[in-house]
Design a protein around this nucleic acid. Structure first.
Lengths: 344, 344
DNA sequence: CCATAGCTCGCATAGCTATTCAAATGAGCG
DNA sequence: CGCTCATTTGAATAGCTATGCGAGCTATGG
């Protein structure tokens, strides 16, 4: 049928602005002006050019345009994930955050590109470094020293780089208001009658956001006159599995507790799993709170009480950090609120 | 401290290959050859060039390189989402699928760029159309006629376009093996003793993947000698809310049933919510099965029995459809398997 | 009717790299 | 030592657009 047309028209060398110019009976610069929305051109001419462009199926070659113009109108975001895992091994929170970034970028008429990169892969930074984006937002934590250095170098010499979650070096850092959130969690659990609290998390420099939550939670709980201890998770990410192991260890050791705060929702899922497997009732026997407010936290039985950052504001802060003229490096905190649900 | 250095070196005009050439005492083409891994160059010269490049902090300007080279080594993926929702309103399944795409692209040494786009936004296709990528993979369903036409035009005239899930027009279409999966679900529910089955889903041309699942499920169930009916969801996406409404309607109408197949996991979550709210025990009173095998399906109580497609293979098929020389348009089915869990 | 200002438009060029082609260099061989 | 061939390098150019600048044209005022 029209199969030949499909194949004949596919990439037979691009249509250039010269061809459009010829068809419209004008010069190439005029074509450029007509399409770029410049006002140094008459309406009639513009009309002619647009018509010719449409007839020929012409589109600006963004490579050449950006080369000439010197900037891209594009923002790059790299989401760090487990090697080989790709999108499968990304914390769901990161995806929610992407929503905020996209919204904020749209407000400023910036295009957002995302790359899901394992640490060892040719890091997405190449893309930025080589002039394909105005700046880079990095989401996720890595213990990889080389990646650390790599992003730092880009931030210092090539394009602005901003981090979500944990800071690497002196780059701009945006994060949930960990201290306020952890305090909210402590206050809520105590208010609900808890006397012996456990914080499931870790205290490493790599996951600085977690350290902040741990510190603030324990401090606030003790301030309120209840006992509070840290149950350290196995190192390496913050996944459901690790929450489960931490809770199982607590049970095995015979530790007593009536409330648990997990520094992220995924850990809380594992904690709930382990407790329920041991026939402990939530929230009657033990109350649970998480952090991050990911969508899946609604799905557990009972639904998880958690701390939810304002992701629109988070997106705005990250975009601002990368495109704005503020001081560098800077640290910004995203406001959080407590989502009271069934688990506490 | 070193703040001046940071600001002084940021974007003071790029370092070009000419500057590297001068420092290394060679010509610009030689620099290009040294960095592109060409073998038409002596080891000593390459060494000199690499040293100079490193000292100057030089990086290939990808805009110019791609302009000259004529291709990009990049694959674009657009994930369609609700207007204003950004990443927040994306089916988690799409993210899992991205993992498969990334893995497949990595095998072929292609970079993957993702854009999360609401239908009305300047669609990501511009990026592809303007020569920034070899082809486009579209994930998600849209009822938007304009988007439909837009992608079709790109596919026919500019760059290859492949769809996941539901086909729009004559573009390449990759999808789970809906028929096999739905049959597996029916067989499993019957085997577990169900006699009166309900399929929660819809039967529209836009969500063709759902139609296929509905048809195959009902047919297979009846073939096995049990009753099976469709409970239509409210139109517009396939979200938890709609599953809940569908189940509530069933209960209100007094329909009897002992097994439910939801055409996607998110719907199944809503179904479970509604049943449990009505004090119906899963799986004792009613057995539930979903489709897609998203990570969150492990979190429900009981965990959801579901149909899981092989996402590595899905990624490979999509990448192949966009970069390969196979026939166009083509339809490919990704093998699925049954994940037996607590809900059925 | 002429001078001037104000719009439009075209010419020439910049932006940076990859590649073609020819030149130069060095090695190998008789 | 002279020649050929293979290897390595340089000069020139293509790839496509956006923009500075000058030229042409029209309208305006005197």
């Amino acid at each position: 049928m029209d199969a030949p047309k499909t194949d004949a028209t596919r990439k037979p060398g691009r249509v250039t602005s010269f061809e459009v110019a010829e068809r419209a009976g004008v010069s190439q610069p005029t074509v450029s002006r007509a399409l770029s929305g410049s006002d140094m051109i008459s309406a009639a001419t513009r009309e002619k050019v647009l018509k010719a462009a449409k007839e020929l199926g012409y589109f600006v070659d963004e490579r050449a345009a950006r080369l000439r113009r010197g900037h891209t109108g594009t923002l790059a975001t790299v989401v760090i994930c487990k090697p080989g895992g790709g999108a499968r091994d990304v914390n769901p929170f990161s995806y929610a955050l992407l929503g905020g970034i996209c919204a904020a970028a749209a407000e400023r008429d910036l295009e957002v590109l995302v790359s899901l990169q394992a640490e060892e892969d040719k890091l997405f930074g190449h893309f930025v470094e080589r002039g394909q984006a105005e700046g880079l937002i990095v989401i996720g934590t890595t213990a990889n020293r080389a990646a650390w250095e790599y992003f730092r170098k880009i931030g210092e010499t090539t394009q602005p780089v901003a981090y979500w979650g944990s800071p690497l070096g002196d780059l701009d850092w945006v994060s949930s208001d960990n201290e306020a959130g952890a305090r909210l969690a402590a206050e809520h659990l105590v208010e609900k009658g808890c006397n012996e609290l456990i914080c499931v998390g870790s205290h490493t420099s790599v996951q600085r956001q977690f350290s902040e939550r741990v510190d603030a939670f324990l401090a606030r709980a003790r301030e309120l006159g209840v006992t509070a201890h840290l149950a350290e998770i196995e190192p390496g990410g913050a996944r459901r599995e690790q929450g489960r192991l931490a809770a199982e260890t607590l049970l095995k050791e015979g530790t007593t507790f009536d409330g648990i705060f997990a520094v992220c929702d995924a850990l809380a899922f594992g904690v709930m799993e382990a407790l329920q497997a041991a026939n402990i009732t939530i929230p009657d026997d033990v109350k649970i709170a998480g952090f991050d407010g990911i969508p899946a936290s609604e799905l557990t039985t009972p639904p998880l009480t958690t701390i939810e950052p304002d992701l629109d504001q988070a997106g705005r802060m990250l975009v601002e950090a990368v495109t704005g003229d503020g001081p560098h490096p800077s640290i910004q905190r995203v406001p959080v609120k407590l989502l009271k649900r069934g688990s506490a």
